[in-house]
Design a protein around this nucleic acid. Sequence first.
DNA 1: ATGCCGGGTCCTACCCGA
Length: 256
Amino acid sequence: MKIATWNVNSIRQREGHVQRWLEQNRPDVLFLQEIKCEAAAFPSLPFHGLGYTTEAVGQKSYNGVAVLAREPFTVVHRALPGLPEGDAQARYIEIETAGMTLIGIYLPNGNSRGDEGFAYKLAWMDRLADRAQVLLDADRPVVITGDFNVCPADVDFAPGALPPTDALVRLESRQRFRRLLWMGLTDAVRAIHPHGPVYTFWDYQAGAWQRDLGLRIDHALLSPTLAERLVSAEADRQERDQPQPSDHVPVTVEIH
DNA sequence: ATGCCGGGTCCTACCCGA
């Protein structure tokens, strides 16, 4: 079973990219982030034509997540449980399929709006840990994948690519990511590639791609029984070389 | 340490991303 994640930086700009990538890679499930449109504007038809059912959680202009899957699924949550009522940011979708719980996230960046923006990121990570704990306590096979906006360790960003004060590398962000691992989740890409950089994002600016000044911020976390069955976890760097690419590339995990 | 790029929108200057 292949489960993929991709921050597409606007689905309306990247619809053709996603179609082509699905045809070439045929994942069972693909989670998207930053669709940047309301759910009603999500272009489902071309994906239906490829055999995928779609579900989008969107809002105008910003954020937005979606899932595409070849087998039937049930949508369990369209927002992260535990967030305050009235939080309208479209960043979370949770489904059940093939006896597993699959969660797609677009975790807040945390660099805008000063202390308040960073506090929102940390609170979001705390609620995510709460949700993960509930599912792990219930012995659910779980995959949490998406754009975490956290470089877990120094090897996960190119030297000089980010200042040490950036919300993606701040100790508080990393502590909360590490808590997810302590709870028993496995960082699939790091399990397959124990050493060295495996970047998933390169800024559009300053020739970051050409200079390979990347970040590893798109992740897949697996519960124990799924981690035992992990066979591959790869970032598709080729996609960053396509015309008009997203600044993120797809990350795919394969579980037997 | 970004806002050089690239997306969005109250259409055009400004917000946001990482």
